[in-house]
Amino acid sequence: MSWQPSMNWPHAKQRAQVLGQIRAFFLARNVIEVETPILAHATVTDAHLDAFVTHYNYSQDSHCDESINLFAQTSPEFAMKRLLASGYGCCYQICKAFRHEEQGRYHNPEFTMLEWYRIDFDHFQLMDEVAALIELILGCDQAERISYQALFIREVDIDPLMTNKEQLIALISSRGKLSYWLEKEDSLDTLLQFVMAELIEPNIGKNAPCFVYNFPASQASLAKISSQDLRVAERFECYFKGIELANGFHELTDAKQQKLRFEQDNAIRAQLGKAKHRIDENFISALEHGLPSCAGVALGIDRLIMLALSASKIDQVITFSIANA
């Protein structure tokens, strides 16, 4: 282990320049920078996301000899939507986020996230703005757009909205990627996500950013279901040069529907042998009060800077990785 930083001084200066460009981009659009807490009383229920947890002994609701759990936030999403529900306008945040996951070429458990929300935007308008920011920072060609359904048909000749397990297993097997756990997997979404990650993502966004939109409704997360096609959600992701850069939604504003999705997440967590997470009631209360119609997106700053600096791994654009933090 070295005490020295993994990012050199020239890269540090270039990173600072990119952050300056981002702030200037939003200043010109009258999108206001905000800050929200890193620690919160609740976290996401997503079955595939795990948060870091710490203990706090000085809660008003407990004796000082007792502790409560506080969670390092996986993103500022819930807190920022609470701001919007309270009357805030279009806003963005550059912050630290934390996910209890393995370190890798494109991921450090502590990372920098850019998240922003645009009132009265849908996911197509937000894709335009994400593309403008990426093109500004990277000087790249104009982004491509393709629906999730059209992408699967083009790349693997399967309609993801009409497929079944047998068809997906046959596809995976024909590409030499089949393993025992996939044969035993009954979740179509898990199989679709595997196909996306292993067979499709390496082939898209090679020369220009690629926006994939209208994901299956079962992968909606916090996005609205399309009124034009109930099989899909108004969600998009952006890929460029093998890196997933951004994940955005035309945001769900219905509190009852959102709470039901959280409960469904917890049911999946239980099936996977994971602990259920308490639903964030502050967030649900904010939705009940009224979240304005909006679209929001989370973009990985470290990954964006990797592309801007032609870095081969995330360690080269952050001062200290988890290995020598």
Rank of each mutant, 00 (worst) to 15 (best):
N8I: 06
A323H: 09
L309R: 09
V297R: 02
L138G: 00
H48W: 11
D122I: 01
D50R: 14
L192F: 08
V156P: 02
P209S: 01
L49G: 05
N203D: 13
K241F: 00
S86R: 07
W116R: 02
I305M: 06
P202G: 14
S218N: 14
A40G: 15
V53H: 08
A217E: 07
Y180W: 12
D315A: 03
D189W: 08
A132I: 02
G242C: 08
Y180D: 12
G273F: 10
S293D: 14
S2V: 12
Q17H: 09
K165A: 03
Q258L: 10
I22V: 15
P209W: 01
S221L: 14
I22E: 05
A170R: 12
E185L: 08
L171P: 03
D186H: 12
Q193M: 13
T45F: 02
G176V: 09
R278D: 13
I68K: 04
L307Q: 01
F262Q: 03
R154C: 12
T36I: 04
N282D: 15
Q103C: 08
F194R: 06
Q271T: 12
E166K: 06
F52W: 12
H48I: 12
A143Q: 00
A40M: 14
T253N: 15
E251K: 02
F152L: 05
H11R: 11
A197G: 15
A311N: 05
I314F: 08
N247K: 06
H41F: 14
T319V: 05
A323G: 08
S147K: 03
A298Q: 05
A79H: 03
V317A: 03
H48Q: 10
E201H: 15
E237W: 11
F152K: 01
A220V: 07
L222G: 05
Y239R: 05
D254W: 07
Y148D: 00
T190Y: 15
F283K: 02
A12Q: 09
L178G: 06
A79P: 02
F78G: 00
Q125I: 10
Q142N: 02
Y106C: 09
S173M: 10
R82W: 02
L188G: 10
E135I: 00
C90D: 12
I158Q: 03
L252G: 02
M127N: 01
F211G: 01
I204M: 09
S75M: 09
F71I: 15
N266I: 08
A308K: 00
L307V: 04
K241C: 00
F78K: 01
G87I: 05
D61A: 05
F211T: 01
K165E: 07
D186F: 11
G273E: 05
T319A: 13
A217H: 12
A325K: 09
D159S: 15
D141L: 07
G296N: 06
L291A: 07
A295R: 06
G89Q: 12
E263Y: 10
H48V: 12
H55L: 08
V31C: 14
P292D: 09
L136P: 00
G87V: 07
K256T: 13
Q14R: 15
Q271S: 14
A16V: 07
L291Q: 04
A220N: 11
M196Y: 11
H41V: 13
I200E: 07
L49K: 13
G20R: 10
P202H: 14
R29H: 15
S2E: 13
M80C: 15
L222R: 06
H41G: 14
F26C: 09
V130N: 00
S147T: 15
F249G: 02
N324C: 01
